[in-house]
Design a protein around this nucleic acid. Sequence first.
DNA 1: CTGAAAGCGCTTACAG
DNA 2: CTGAAAGCGCTTACAG
Lengths: 367, 367
Amino acid sequence: MSIEQNSPIFEKRSPVRLVDVAKAAGVSRWAAGYVLNGGVGRSRVSNETASRIRDVAHRLNYQPHFAARQLRGKRSRTLGVLVASAGDPLRSFLVQYLDAEAVKVGCRTFMANTIGNPSVGPNQFDFHVEQFARRGVDGVLCAVHHWFPGDRAALLDRHPNTVFYESPGIPDAAYVTVGREEAVRIAVRHLIERGRRRIGLAVMDLSHPSGKARLRGYDKELAAHNFATEKRLVFQGNSIGLAYAKCNEETGAWEFPHDKMDRVIDALVVDQKADAIVTHDDFWAASILRSLRARGIRVPEDVALVGYLNHYLADWIDPPLTTVDLQHRVAAQQMIEMVEKMIAGETLDDAERVSVVRPKLIVRSSS
Amino acid sequence: MSIEQNSPIFEKRSPVRLVDVAKAAGVSRWAAGYVLNGGVGRSRVSNETASRIRDVAHRLNYQPHFAARQLRGKRSRTLGVLVASAGDPLRSFLVQYLDAEAVKVGCRTFMANTIGNPSVGPNQFDFHVEQFARRGVDGVLCAVHHWFPGDRAALLDRHPNTVFYESPGIPDAAYVTVGREEAVRIAVRHLIERGRRRIGLAVMDLSHPSGKARLRGYDKELAAHNFATEKRLVFQGNSIGLAYAKCNEETGAWEFPHDKMDRVIDALVVDQKADAIVTHDDFWAASILRSLRARGIRVPEDVALVGYLNHYLADWIDPPLTTVDLQHRVAAQQMIEMVEKMIAGETLDDAERVSVVRPKLIVRSSS
DNA sequence: CTGAAAGCGCTTACAG
DNA sequence: CTGAAAGCGCTTACAG
């Protein structure tokens, strides 16, 4: 509260109001508002008058006052975007595309980082949910990783027009997700086509739905090629105490257990003679790549690697990484489309509530 | 304009108004506003009454309507952030920190990407400048790379409370920049301390002020150690037709001329026997590293490399990269501090108008 | 402290 | 089409 105390009166905006345009054009305020804001009903303004009004508005550089519109009951044309950390390698482009798509439908986004800003108190997620209410956002896009805290149900309660990136695990919630089953299938298919015969899968957590979907894709694609599936070719990160990446709130650095990636190589390459690994994401792949080189194991000659995400990192490591692109731009388009429908008052049926984006294989040199 | 047509009446916000709180607390609207918004002048509300009002507000979950405040002449408590591309490796964390610092002073940021969204027309920079005016932002933070278009002078004219990241080359403009001279000095000093004797400098453009500052740092630090400076140890990217990174607007990929990095190695390592290179940024370093490996030249044994930026990429390449951290969090703090001063109506003198952030060397394995 | 009032810029229903 | 009016939620100056 104290932060809002004693804020001075503040007036910097352009002084041109609708009434100024009306006067300058020699028409009524109603007529000016009608042509500039697209009045309802059939036009009762002649084309000549309308274009004169538009000319005057342009000449005076009239900019409608959004706060006044909002106060009168119109949409604020703002959307809240919740994300663990907007600079986050896993999310920064999704966030950018969400904004670009929002701009296309005449909206702006309010960014809200739910980690890395201890100044707003312990529960940054809830803090931003309330802030969004103060600002009167039309809807919310939530792209916070599932392993970060935040009361998603309360968010949905406060802002019914919310679309999630990845399932929040709440019945009836609207969300866009990536087809993980297909992601692994196209990776495995590609590796088989390249002649690999012992393909390993290294993921973080097989108990989470996203991990289960990956395993399903792995099993199905191997079966489709009449390959036997061996449990020992599946490596589960959390079984050796791996946890999802967290940001060190003091240094701002993302911590990654590079040393533990050796365990993946021990389990899959040394013990099981894997000649390919479908990895949890590009970061796992990059780290595994480094450990393989340190042991004198060549990529892709001895072991092929496929990542997941298609972060630009993939093009900078050596060799450049074959990976599955998550199609963030498509996901952003669909999230905006869904939230706009909800704002317009449409009720989404079950088929419209969930959208699965098809991932795409990007072949580089690691496979 | 057409995008704003026929927008329906829209009311989703919490129905609790200031007057509701006042009624529930049994006080006047004035008293409620006074304690909740920090009234001016000495308190004429008893402590007991004040805490009762606050309790009621909290119980009813009262959220002030920012649009109404703004309409009445208060600050909107929003800041516009202009950036070429928010997901951009060179800027994503700066953007995140700007938002975090804005939140600390009770503001929110509006993101605006000036590239990658052809839907808003050819001049996305100007488009967003006008959009910011409609929204009534209190100030603008401009972090668009200097090689991207945009009328900075018009921005400053429309939004006098603007702070730039990097000098816009406009007299009296307020900006925060990184001490590039010092950045190169600490890199060179470190390499000399590690026993390097032929230290090369590879930068994009020596005609731009930022390039000149780097060269100055290079010359000065070598001179401080009684090293001769040789022009041939300085490589200038634009001399071989290198250009600043651009984003392919269709694919969204950032294009980098990996193949041309061989020219750096030819010029500095092969011809001039350099045993160390201070590189333009982490991306140059990563690409040079890859080319060196392909030629069988070892890093750091044969050639040491130092980057510039401390992107998280630096920790993922092999070997991890020694680099100069740009201290984005510090830069963001100072940008917010400056813009807040301007908003408060303070006039900044010349010393306050420009802030030079001290970079910091991060030593990893490439040197 | 209270109470009644004005006004920010807009949208909209209403009578002509 | 015009013109006069109400009202969104807030802040603030004013008379008590």
